[in-house]
Write a protein that binds this DNA or RNA. Structure first.
Lengths: 234, 234
DNA sequence: TGCATTATTATGTACGCACATATTAAAACG
DNA sequence: CGTTTTAATATGTGCGTACATAATAATGCA
């Protein structure tokens, strides 16, 4: 029922597999043919089928287990990739003019939640920086950051009046893992003041902690101006 | 300076490449050695290096171009993957009891923004469904959905009193693309009523539109109860 | 000199084989 | 009959070769 393709690329194999899953030729929960069988049927090498199925599995549409074979996922958990660029780049990519202002920089004893995140002992102080990023002169996001300067001693050489912590860290400090949260909050008085909105206005907040070798390096809270949207494609 | 590895897996190659990038042995903007050179240096086949570098490129840390070679990304755009499960599964995975209630289901002329999204002509009505999902009996999210029932005729057979549109669509209607937005909004009176919060409280909102063959099928607005966080790892 | 044409080259991919590994099914055993 | 051991098997991965493709550099031509 299928004509001999001129060329079997792994992408064409993937497309065919996606088609069969979408049209329920292979229903959720069903096992799909083995790599060998697909290779023979579609006229290509098993390694090509493997490449294609790996890609489908990454999308979350099939589950693969050795010896058990591949099954169409029962609850296809859509996997979406978000791009998290440096703030300056995010703004400039939109064609807007980037602006930056340092608000405050000091050493202070972090509040309990931050202390827990940074694993810092009680009554020890950490570097605390607050800054603002502007798009076309309008407030875009507040950067409220704590840095473990015992982990990043070279931070004392940074001039955060000239470069944002966001950018300096990306350029200077390597890290290997981290976690990110997205949430909605009400702007507190100071946030509202800085962002030029009303106290209590809903604001989009990103919390991010980065680590190196299991040790937390820095945690940041980004409060975006009202109206901010994070967009992506499936 | 490197001992002969017992086995070169593509993951070990990737780890070594990541290490060199993190430690700035290869600085941002720099070209990195060609696949051939790396293969010789690290004692493996070029295809193995290729596999490793492809993985690094997917993470956004290098950029690869034919003939030009691979370069360490100047602004490493972190790429993060979010899992978007079916609502019921998301709740049950947290160990909570899932609950669901249909609020309303009718045909109506969509407001202008929805009409634009669905490409529906003026004064034509579409299926409009509102429902709620509960976690352990507490309101978790409002599902406010418009369905283009000219694209999905079989929707007339669905019983949305028994199964949520969210779940029915995932199980029944294949789609090939879509887009998602995340934002913060103030709960309007009705939202607040349903979610058991105050009007004006900040709520996390997800907007999602799915398409098949370029034609929009459905668009949904998910209003989460206050306090909701979306978490992921880098 | 300016522009179109032709090499050159690094990555992209296909293939076929071999073997590793995880997992399940079958067999052996008490 | 339940438990441990062993075999079977589908996927995971490495390798080396060959060729495809895109982007660039070099060349030729008007």
């Amino acid at each position: 029922m299928k004509r001999s393709e001129q060329k079997a690329t792994w992408q064409s194999i993937e497309a065919e597999v996606l088609r069969r899953i979408r049209l329920r030729e292979w229903a959720p929960g069903d096992p799909i043919p083995h790599e060998d069988a697909l290779a023979r049927e579609l006229g290509c090498a098993r390694s090509t089928v493997n490449r294609a199925l790996r890609s489908v599995a990454e999308k979350g549409l099939i589950e693969r287990r050795r010896r058990a074979g591949s099954h169409v996922a029962l609850n296809p958990v859509r996997r979406v990739t978000l791009n998290i660029p440096v703030l300056r780049q995010e703004i400039e990519d939109r064609g807007a003019t980037y602006g930056y202002v340092l608000i405050s920089e000091d050493h202070a004893v972090p509040p309990a939640p931050i202390r827990a995140i940074l694993h810092s002992p009680p009554d020890t102080s950490r570097l605390h920086i607050r800054a603002m990023h502007f798009a076309d002169g309008k407030p875009h996001v507040i950067e409220d950051r704590w840095i473990d300067d015992t982990q990043i001693p070279q931070v004392s050489a940074a001039d955060f009046a000239a470069i944002s912590p966001n950018e300096w860290l990306v350029r200077t400090v390597p890290f290997e893992s981290g976690d990110i949260s997205f949430l909605a909050e009400a702007a507190n008085g100071e946030d509202a003041n800085l962002l030029g909105c009303m106290t209590g206005d809903p604001v989009f907040v990103t919390e991010r902690t980065t680590r190196q070798g299991g040790r937390p390096l820095t945690t940041v809270r980004l409060v975006f101006a009202p109206g901010h949207k994070v967009k992506t494609q499936i």
